[in-house]
Design a protein around this nucleic acid. Structure first.
Lengths: 159, 159
DNA sequence: GATATTATCTCGTTCATCGAGATTATCGTT
DNA sequence: AACGATAATCTCGATGAACGAGATAATATC
């Protein structure tokens, strides 16, 4: 907490935020008999539904960084809990479309709703220019992490 | 990605960053035969070492949100990999101090070093005032998440 | 010095995740 | 219009991370 370099302080602060959000999700998972991965999956699926992006097991597995066997088991779990449904794609019948149920939307809202509301409320203390700066910052950090991830994977394959 | 509410966009962007960082850690874990939890533990332990905060199994378990049995198993794993050592506290002999080895520091640096460097470099494109705004923002979001987590836990116990 | 509290660990069970490979559907070639 | 090649998903068996319940040991409290 007493980094000389002010920039390092920010790196750790960013990480502290991710730690808190992860713990928040884990707390929710435990309370509802879900596993952390289930919650992460739910987030991505709800996002996809809201953006009208078609979700498939393959896509979901890629989002979460788990292999195909685990993804099948994951979708099985969510289906058993009636949070998602599997539907064969009519155009490409190798594909399975994962759709979220109303129950999942309700559950997700009960979970994220209060948190999001609080966050938005907290953002009200920032003016437009500040928020634009923050957006620029977060976009930069996301890209650094995404690029770093690719480099890590590819670089290690090369040794 | 096309939220009407600009603030919601920022919430999702913040989450996108945490998703990327989690995937980065998972990637690293897989490459080194570690589990995601091991990596998370390592981060906290390296932080504690740098800040000279004494780390114990109980403290570590609280940081990660896992129970005492899992924490014991976790420390066993890390000890077997020679990333940490257990040392009985001389003053309170119920306590075990977890200290990181040089190997852990090296490993952690090889992992986070490049990412942190890239992040710091990217921060150079922001002036002092911008970074102060971002710091204020991240502190606010961290507190919202931390408070929300407590409310979630306490509120559900009350029903 | 008995009792309660705190910190860590042990045991047995459950189930998420993995690697390898099977299955089914589609695409491009000839 | 049959062919191997590629793609998407699923099955199987094995491994081990995480949990709950409770044991053990040291310290604090009365």
């Amino acid at each position: 907490m007493d980094d000389r370099e002010p920039d390092l302080q920010l790196v750790h602060l960013l990480r502290a935020v991710t730690v808190e959000l992860d713990l928040f999700a884990a707390e929710f998972a435990g309370l509802h008999g879900l596993h952390p991965t289930d919650v992460r999956a739910l987030i991505h699926l709800l996002d996809a539904a809201r953006a009208d992006t078609p979700a498939t097991p393959g896509w979901l597995g890629a989002q979460l960084g788990v292999n195909s066997a685990s993804t099948t088991a994951l979708v099985d779990r969510l289906e058993r809990l009636e949070l998602v449904r599997r539907e064969r794609d009519t155009h490409d019948r190798r594909r399975v479309r994962i759709t979220v149920t109303d129950r999942a939307v309700t559950l997700g809202w009960s979970f994220f709703g209060p948190l999001i509301s609080e966050m938005v409320a907290s953002m009200r203390t920032f003016d437009e220019e500040d928020l634009a700066t923050v957006r620029r910052f977060l976009l930069a950090m996301r890209d650094v992490a995404a690029t770093g991830r690719r480099n890590q994977r590819d670089g290690s394959a090369g040794r």
